[in-house]
Nucleic acid binder design. Sequence first.
DNA 1: CGCGGGCTTGTACATTTGTACCAGAAGGCT
DNA 2: AGCCTTCTGGTACAAATGTACAAGCCCGCG
Lengths: 207, 207
Amino acid sequence: MAGSDRQPQPNGTTDRRDAILRAALQLIGRQGLHAVTHRDVAAEAGVPLASTTYYFESKEELLTEALLLFVRDELERLEQAAASFEGVSTSPEQVADAMTAEVQRTLDRPELQVAQFELYLQATRDPQLARASVQAFDAYMKTTKAALRAAGAENAEELAPLFQALARGLVFAQLVDRQPDWAEKILKPALLRLFRALSPQAERQLP
Amino acid sequence: MAGSDRQPQPNGTTDRRDAILRAALQLIGRQGLHAVTHRDVAAEAGVPLASTTYYFESKEELLTEALLLFVRDELERLEQAAASFEGVSTSPEQVADAMTAEVQRTLDRPELQVAQFELYLQATRDPQLARASVQAFDAYMKTTKAALRAAGAENAEELAPLFQALARGLVFAQLVDRQPDWAEKILKPALLRLFRALSPQAERQLP
DNA sequence: CGCGGGCTTGTACATTTGTACCAGAAGGCT
DNA sequence: AGCCTTCTGGTACAAATGTACAAGCCCGCG
């Protein structure tokens, strides 16, 4: 039953490879980047040990690829999120809701959330991951700007970095010190508070 | 020459032990928490391998102690910083300067900066580290509140979490994507921007 | 001065871990 | 059908690593 629809991929994108990478990503979050072993990954992915060395030259490559896969997924997700804001004009409340919901989506998988920060830390040591991280940051920024514009902010370009930093800081704190109803009770109010303080003119545009 | 001023410490706080912990902390930042080995630490601290196992029951204990030492140092530093703001009343600019300088102090040691985030990530897996991290967060918060009060903010209690998150988010981004003159050109303006938007009444109190 | 407890340190060892290897299965192509 | 590339998966092995051990050192104290 294995590989029933398999087709040789010189490029190397099989189901199994993907399963290994996603298992690795999960484990990176759960155990920490360097605490992940080939055997851990194989067990988590439900494949024999040798599979992990078949698809990847080395453990470092496996882990790096896993983190890059995460970035690719994020870029896609953020692209869609940004598009959903483009050309829209709604109330700050609704935009805050949307942003909160988007963040909440990533919080539903705590391991991935932690893995994301493992990525950033490793990016301080690996130029390739640093480039990928910056790409991800840019995508977050783009989405944030679109959201701010949708909420009626005239100075979205200037405000986005502040929202970006605020959100990242809050997410990080929540990661260490989990709070019930965090998204609704902490993130959303903070975003709204910041928005109202920084973009007072937006409030007046709607009845 | 070794142990010339040594005195038996049932508590276990010798020069050597401290040197090992600080070496470990340095390496945690440089290589990542779980990539640190006994032999690495011994080499970095300039002590024989057996020393690291003499002072600590296990590698995990060594690394955990190193992170806890970092927290203890931070608590002390932040206590002083908070005290330096207490009862003072100056301009927002000066407070932003002081906060920026304080952050800059930690940026001068990039390894420690990274180690700090390694701590927080590991705190998601270790309750003891989680408690210590929350302690550190509280200390940051206390210092931030004192700073905001010194700048004339009436609602320091409410604003501090926002400043806290903003600063942490900015520090984190800088860690991944280093910018020249970051403190002066990014952090300080962001703090001032936020302060002016959130605490407009503070501006009026000074000539 | 000898003794004892803390400290030092070279070395040993069992495990863990990354990685290589090899025999074989599975399908697509001629 | 036969071959060849791709994949599978069991196993082996050398290096790295955590940890234990034992012999010696140093200094304060009786």
